[in-house]
């Protein structure tokens, strides 16, 4: 059995960690899948799906570490006019942070429930807000 859900959201900051653990767990519980996997996948190239501990200090460290590694102003090659978009590429830091974050996470499903570590939470992470965004939750199993 395969069940897919598309979730839409609106980011309200340039960098924003949006906790989606509850949304994913609810969909798994309602999917009818008893044993299998759940995948959470972003639909964008300047966002990420991240698993980490939901503490404000950890979230702040993640943001600051990414900013140190990938500053807003640098000589990014992406900063030029893109005829296929009709806009100038101004979001190279978002692309690079997305690369470090990755676009998905996978968790086991057992006895109809998502299995997750006690310190783990799932985040949809915005690296290029403010934007209209979406991500997918897909449950695969029996």
């Amino acid at each position: 059995m395969v069940k897919l859900k598309t979730v839409r959201l609106r980011s309200v900051r340039e960098f924003q960690m949006i906790k989606i653990t509850g949304e994913v767990a609810d969909f798994v519980a309602r999917s009818g899948v008893q044993n299998g996997l759940v995948a959470v996948i972003t639909a964008h190239t300047t966002t990420g799906i991240m698993m980490n501990e939901s503490l404000p200090c950890v979230e702040e460290d993640i943001e600051e570490a990414l900013e140190r590694l990938i500053p807003k102003d640098s000589s990014y090659m992406h900063a030029h006019f893109l005829p296929s978009y009709g806009t100038t590429g101004g979001n190279s830091p978002g692309h690079l942070k997305s690369m470090l974050s990755g676009n998905n996470c996978i968790l086991p499903v057992q006895d109809g429930k998502m299995v997750i570590g006690h310190a783990q939470d799932i985040y949809f992470v915005e690296f290029d807000g403010l934007k209209m965004r979406s991500y997918f939750i897909e449950v695969i199993g029996e």
């Binding site: 609106r10 005829p83 296929s84 978009y85 009709g86 806009t87 209209m132």
Partner: peptide
């Protein structure tokens, strides 16, 4: 020439 722009609320 804004080929990938989508409506926003």
């Amino acid at each position: 020439g804004l080929y990938k722009t989508s409506p926003s609320p």
